[in-house]
Nucleic acid binder design. Structure first.
Lengths: 148, 148
DNA sequence: CGTTATGTACCAACTATGGTTACAACAACG
DNA sequence: CGTTGTTGTAACCATAGTTGGTACATAACG
């Protein structure tokens, strides 16, 4: 199964906020027109980012903003905020192996350590990418040509 | 989203085959009793492993076996065999960002390289674990105590 | 108080997972 | 050759997650 598009949408949203916040009020409407989805989708997503402490958003007046310096928000933070895997486990283990079978009894112990290493490798790589890095790359692509 | 339990079941099945093949005929019935799922689930799964060239299985007489030396089967092979992500992409990108928005137009280019690196880190780690490694770890846990 | 935007409840279509039953196809054996 | 055991596969179901949408109460603010 693929990691849901909520993740890439969340990154898109965060980059959008940073690029446009000095010139526009960042509403769910505004963001939805860049991502091309329903505003409600954006609002739900922003709620998840808010719970994770990545953005602030005010109710009546509107407008979202990042809640932390950009170099302190990594792709892993966004991933964890949005990909609501309760356990935090990347791999879904089959729950009831037959404990009377020697393989069934030990498969968990044999596999777990390896699976953790794999998950950790992925998370480390995610953690190494900050929003600041992505914003810089975005700015580089915007500046050479014309302005917004 | 989690990686489906088909993956850990597949590994369980492959280890089972190797541990028991000298003493038992490896039928879907036999495997299903160790994994604790319906035999049909095992058969469907074995079909995927077969298509990937990891196991052989004969129809009427029954009995599955690995099709390659164990040190040449990695967790990545099993993952690719079983996790039928058509594109091979771990991340699902939202498809229609607004190309009239500078961020929407460039988000793909900015993110893709980073996402590929993350996926590659995971795949590299998966590739570093062979079935032989897992079998050895399993045997170590079985020998100290009693035999089957 | 009216305007604006968020927060959230509810709905719907689609897809994947995990499981089950049923049965045809096939190999091996007495 | 027919019986037996097993695979390969279709059909079906329940459940859950994804993606997308409508509607409206709630809060902020001029």
């Amino acid at each position: 199964m693929q990691i849901s598009s909520r993740f890439t949408i969340a990154v898109h949203v965060l980059v959008c906020i940073e690029v446009f916040k000095k010139d526009y009020k960042i509403t769910s409407e505004f963001l939805s027109s860049s991502v091309n989805v329903n505003p409600v989708v954006i609002r739900k997503l922003i709620q998840q980012l808010k719970k994770a402490g990545l953005v602030c958003v005010v109710r009546g007046s509107g407008g979202a903003d990042t809640a932390k310096p950009l170099d302190q928000i990594t792709l892993l933070d966004v991933y964890n905020a949005v990909e609501c895997v309760d356990s935090g486990e990347l791999f879904h283990f089959h729950e009831n192996p037959n404990l009377l079978c020697p393989v069934g009894k030990n498969i968990h112990a044999v596999l777990d350590e390896r699976l953790e290493k794999i998950q950790k490798a992925m998370e480390d790589e995610m953690q190494s990418v900050t929003l600041l890095d992505l914003l810089n790359r975005m700015q580089n692509r915007l500046q050479p040509g014309s302005e917004i």
